[in-house]
Simulated scan of single mutants.
Amino acid sequence: MTRKNEGIDMDLIKEYNEKELTIKVKDKIDTTTAPDFENEIIDEIGNFNSLIIDFTELEYISSAGLRVLFTVKGKLNPQNIPFIIKVNDINKDIFEMAGLDKILNIIRN
């Protein structure tokens, strides 16, 4: 599934492996695309028992995108659903500089 908003692209692909959902996001998550990103995840809650967000091909994430991850974490924690974020070197640095690697389950792919 591809989302296009005001000239900014966010490619988002959902893949199920039984009850594990992987969401691969490419290009950018910013204030324009973050609401779509959030809705794509929230719409699937109840359909999976573990979630992997694959940012290994993500070029940019804004604070709006990071906020979505906190919202998702808050919705999944009461249900004890594992939530992993795969990142590349650039994104890993962003998460580490913001201290988010201590709050979210971040792995280098």
Rank of each mutant, 00 (worst) to 15 (best):
P82K: 03
I61W: 06
N91T: 08
I81T: 14
I90K: 15
N91A: 04
G74Y: 03
T71I: 15
D101V: 00
L100P: 00
K92Q: 14
L58E: 11
V72L: 02
M97G: 01
I61D: 08
I94N: 04
E96H: 05
I84S: 04
I94C: 00
G99V: 09
I84N: 11
S62C: 09
F70C: 11
L100Y: 03
E96P: 01
D93W: 00
G65W: 05
K86T: 01
P78D: 13
I94T: 12
V68P: 06
L66A: 07
L66N: 07
N77R: 15
V68T: 09
D93H: 12
E96V: 12
I81M: 11
P78S: 09
G99I: 02
P82S: 08
V72Y: 04
V72R: 01
G65Q: 10
F70H: 13
A98Q: 01
L69D: 06
K86C: 10
D101H: 11
K75D: 10
K75W: 11
V72D: 03
K92V: 00
V72W: 01
I61Y: 06
N80D: 15
L58T: 09
E96I: 11
I90C: 08
K86F: 03
A98T: 13
P78H: 10
K92A: 08
G99H: 06
I90T: 15
S62V: 14
I61V: 14
I85K: 05
F95I: 02
I94Q: 00
Y60R: 10
T71R: 13
T71M: 12
E96W: 01
S63C: 09
L58H: 08
P82E: 09
A64M: 08
D89H: 12
V72T: 09
G74M: 08
N80Q: 15
I61L: 04
L66D: 04
M97Y: 05
Y60M: 11
D101E: 09
K75T: 07
I85F: 01
T71Y: 05
N91C: 11
P78L: 10
N77H: 11
D89P: 05
G65P: 07
Q79I: 07
L76R: 02
D101R: 04
F70E: 03
K73N: 10
